[in-house]
Design a protein around this nucleic acid. Sequence first.
DNA 1: TATGAATGAGACTTCATTCAT
DNA 2: TATGAATGAAGTCTCATTCAT
Lengths: 204, 204, 204, 204
Amino acid sequence: MQKKRSRIQIINQQKVLDAGTEVFAKYGSRGATIDQIAEMAGMSKPNLLYYFKSKKEIYLAVLEQTLNKWLQCLMEWQVTGSPEETITNYINKKFEFSRDHAAGSRVFANEILEGAPILKSLLGEELMRLVGEDTRVIKGWIKDDLIRPIEPIHLIFMIWAVTQHYADFSAQIETLTGKTLDDEKFYKQAKKTVTQIILNGVLK
Amino acid sequence: MQKKRSRIQIINQQKVLDAGTEVFAKYGSRGATIDQIAEMAGMSKPNLLYYFKSKKEIYLAVLEQTLNKWLQCLMEWQVTGSPEETITNYINKKFEFSRDHAAGSRVFANEILEGAPILKSLLGEELMRLVGEDTRVIKGWIKDDLIRPIEPIHLIFMIWAVTQHYADFSAQIETLTGKTLDDEKFYKQAKKTVTQIILNGVLK
Amino acid sequence: MQKKRSRIQIINQQKVLDAGTEVFAKYGSRGATIDQIAEMAGMSKPNLLYYFKSKKEIYLAVLEQTLNKWLQCLMEWQVTGSPEETITNYINKKFEFSRDHAAGSRVFANEILEGAPILKSLLGEELMRLVGEDTRVIKGWIKDDLIRPIEPIHLIFMIWAVTQHYADFSAQIETLTGKTLDDEKFYKQAKKTVTQIILNGVLK
Amino acid sequence: MQKKRSRIQIINQQKVLDAGTEVFAKYGSRGATIDQIAEMAGMSKPNLLYYFKSKKEIYLAVLEQTLNKWLQCLMEWQVTGSPEETITNYINKKFEFSRDHAAGSRVFANEILEGAPILKSLLGEELMRLVGEDTRVIKGWIKDDLIRPIEPIHLIFMIWAVTQHYADFSAQIETLTGKTLDDEKFYKQAKKTVTQIILNGVLK
DNA sequence: TATGAATGAGACTTCATTCAT
DNA sequence: TATGAATGAAGTCTCATTCAT
């Protein structure tokens, strides 16, 4: 039985989720405090806890929301044509996610650094399935002699690693370059360079 | 006047640093607790605080120790010859660091996720200098027509991202593959694939 | 923007200040514990810390409140007429303060015994100004041949010393006489004797 | 059975007592820490605890030592002749004690502020006897019409209060005058003024 | 006699959570 | 729905004291 949610409820829950995402992104599920989230959400602590019963519940909701966005991102991707097209498209999608959901990406990073206790169960199976599919596609390309014979899983990790890096390590990137993915020119340059190297790296 | 450190002091301080590295790697500077570190170090909390006056002090010492190892890693790298040789060597070194200092790498990751408040001041200048040098070398290669014309900084980020990924996201990698870099065969395979793709990606 | 203080807030903060005054009076800023203050204030420790963020903050507030009362005491005093009248009035005021704010007086005593680290900055200038004025008045009296030629500053110290003594050393006084300033007869007797001796001591 | 004390033992115990006096003078029996005492005594904490089994024991020894000096001070005083002579002598002795044992005086002050739990039992009887004697002497003077009819106990308190004030509140006095009793000229001036006022205050 | 090492008790403070309104 | 007030649990850190050498 789905509880009916009033308009204000939806708005405030989203406020909490957004604030929670920012704070969990910085300090992880343990380091984050409800106070910080409440302040960032612009509401009192007890009021926040009126919408989410506990810190854990907020965390789960944040993880879930980010997860949904992430899965949506992956699902928008399709094996549409040539490896070149497909890989380019895949990198594009991942870069977009890093730019549009940088904080969410960092929440994931923190969760994984903590050993992924929640994520493991939330998306273990699902992710293995997705990765399995990707692996099969890449293996097909190799068999068809469309790309070099590389170990598919590491190509996937490479793409994940690089694209997430721009979100997760943006503090470091900003220190070194003064830019983040919010800078359109920098964004395009990063995407272009990465795509270029990977395509040249795998295409025959 | 440097205080003399007895044998047991050195041993226990190292015990604390090792335990601290593990715990900070998982939970970050805020999420980690002295209790956890003490337990992992096999000593009582007050005894631990006999060696390091505060949690912050442990954290700083951990960061510094990891930093030194990391800088040592980077400094062992030399522009020895061809781009191929040099890049291969660089990737090798970084992979080695990820395998041998996975926890340290994760401490860094956490620190950067928190906005790198300490690291920024600890290695801001130093890192910019190092990256500046690397950038210049790569630009030289491009000018000499030895590699494709790519934006150097993103190549550097790529290599960092990928190699660190194996350390920082090992929980995820383990879930998906059942392996970590401790598995010699997996380690070699990862290194080989990554090196291959990047070399082919940049060499003419 | 001054935060509005609700009725209960004012009451509870005053409860804490009163309890704090008692405890700091006995044990000083270091020896006093939040537990004692909380218990005496009849509230839980975290609740107390809801009103004052730290022990230091309580201490500062106690000092400040006592200071204000003390300054008010000094300011109610006026050079109204003859030395006799004026000195009598001054001693009266000080005795009143010792009786009505014995604990506060002891907080001051403790603070000064600790070296007055806070008080010095809180009232350094102010007190010097006040003492300067008093000194000038006394010197005027001497010049006008109204009182004996004594060193004014020591007369001031004498009055302070004696009047505060009844508050600060009341434990000793009680042991020896079985009385405190709360005993009206004893109070009057003390005030009368002290006034008598000092007046006869300085008047021509 | 008195334990034999070696030369070094005597020296070190005195070091601890001296350091303890300084520290207890500032922070009272509760606020003082063994660390502070040990550092000021120039020895390690365990070594200090080799000479005194506990903090309480140090405190008791400090109190006792100061007490002995104080009693000695009082006993050197004799009713030698006229009230003038006797009172002058008494004030002299007390001023001397304040100058030579300022820290000890402050230890007493702290102890009394804490309610004198130890002192009460250590010198309750003794002090009452002494004060009783003094009172009788003064009453004799009054009966013999040598001094004005004042309440003796308050004269005694006055002298105690004033002389101790210079030791106990020296921090305040130093702020206001820039001097302490260590300044010979200031010392004499204070003693002279106080003596003058009190003598004129009580003599016929 | 001296000290580095260790620890239990306790003090300060934070934080998730609940209560009352 | 909102919030000021309250609290138990937990975390950081200090301190008196003991142990081992």
